[in-house]
């Protein structure tokens, strides 16, 4: 393939591959915790690090990692301590991150361009960057896959996780720092403003098709790799910004999968409704034959097996 002749394209494709893997691997935990916005916020804060790097003429990637990690830890602590007013404090931090980055970059000498960091630029993946990206990506995958059981437990039900004796705060901080690292890894390819999309959209695509967490995570990673590598390849032939291309491909896929699975879901819903009405009969039986409750309940769970009854009021006793 001709595009692999160029060093910058090799680096860009390698970066795209790593970003496509790491972003959904972290994103799946954020989505599980219903914090899809986290990646966005960390991206905003990382911009201050980029600005600092440009101003001090140091590696923007390194400073972005440090700033984003510090910001992610603060976000996590704010979240932990103030369940109510947390979102306001977080918004202030996010805006501060962008404003700080733009301000610092504007004060730097030379004609520094933030656009490459905001929206991604393939040619900006420098040879020395690629080493950092490879190391960070391996670390992110080691954490998100190696610690998947405790991370799943914490993100599924944080209070339950506390009572199991798991080190919940340490795990939460680990997710935050891992997300920050991922943001900076992805910065060169999709840019800070779109990095969150690559964390969230592949997960959104995957969960239309899956029932288990493990399969959702694997599918999301596969989708992430597919969209980021294909998007990067496309920008070699078409003059388009890589971040926007990748995200638009991902969203198109999201809509496509949604349209394809819609008839399936409708059928499943119909089957569920049927199962519920049969369950209703079972419950009636159980209610009248009080002495034989045990048998009736076994019978009712038998009827429901193989189908998926939706949570409905029909089956439940009023509180």
């Amino acid at each position: 393939m001709s595009l692999l002749q160029y060093d910058f394209m090799q680096r860009a494709l390698l970066a795209a591959l790593l970003v496509g893997m790491t972003a959904p691997a972290v994103g799946v935990y954020l989505v599980q915790r219903r914090q899809a916005f986290m990646g966005d916020g960390i991206g905003h804060i990382a911009l201050t690090g980029v600005g600092l790097g440009l101003l001090l003429d140091r590696s923007p990637v390194l400073l972005a990692v440090l700033t984003a990690a510090a910001g992610a830890v603060v976000i996590e602590l704010v979240r932990e301590h103030s369940k109510v007013s947390g979102d306001l404090a977080l918004s202030v931090m996010f805006y501060g991150g962008i404003a700080g980055g733009v301000m610092l970059a504007s004060q730097s000498e030379g004609n520094s361009n933030l656009d490459a960091y905001l929206f991604g630029q393939l040619t900006s993946v420098a040879p020395e960057d690629i080493q950092v990206i490879v190391i960070l990506a391996i670390a992110v995958l080691a954490v998100t896959i190696g610690l998947r059981r405790p991370l799943f437990t914490v993100c599924q039900d944080e209070e339950f996780a506390r009572v199991t004796g798991l080190p919940v705060r340490a795990l939460n901080l680990l997710i935050a720092v891992t997300a920050a690292v991922t943001v900076t890894v992805a910065m060169r390819v999709v840019g800070l403003l779109l990095v969150s999309a690559l964390m969230v959209v592949p997960v959104a695509i995957a969960q239309q098709l899956t029932r288990t967490f493990a399969v959702t995570m694997a599918t999301a990673i596969a989708v992430g790799v597919a969209v980021s590598v294909s998007g990067t390849t496309l920008t070699y032939y078409v003059d388009a910004p890589p971040g926007a291309t990748i995200v638009l491909i991902a969203i198109a896929l999201f809509v496509l999968v949604g349209l394809l699975t819609a008839p399936l879901n409708l059928r499943r819903a119909a089957r569920r409704a049927a199962a519920v009405s049969s369950a209703e009969v079972d419950v009636d039986v159980a209610a009248t034959v009080g002495a034989q409750r045990r048998d009736a309940s076994t019978g009712s769970s038998g009827t429901m097996s193989g189908t998926s009854p939706a949570p409905t009021a029909v089956e439940e006793e009023p509180r």
Partner: peptide, 27 residues
């Protein structure tokens, strides 16, 4: 809880298996 579900699909077995974890048994 009103629901055992979180933001990402999880199977019944995955949720129940999470009950086996503790400080010494994480992996």
């Amino acid at each position: 809880r009103t629901t055992a579900a979180a933001g990402v699909p999880a199977s019944v077995r995955e949720v129940v298996a999470s009950g086996r974890l503790d400080r010494r048994r994480m992996f």
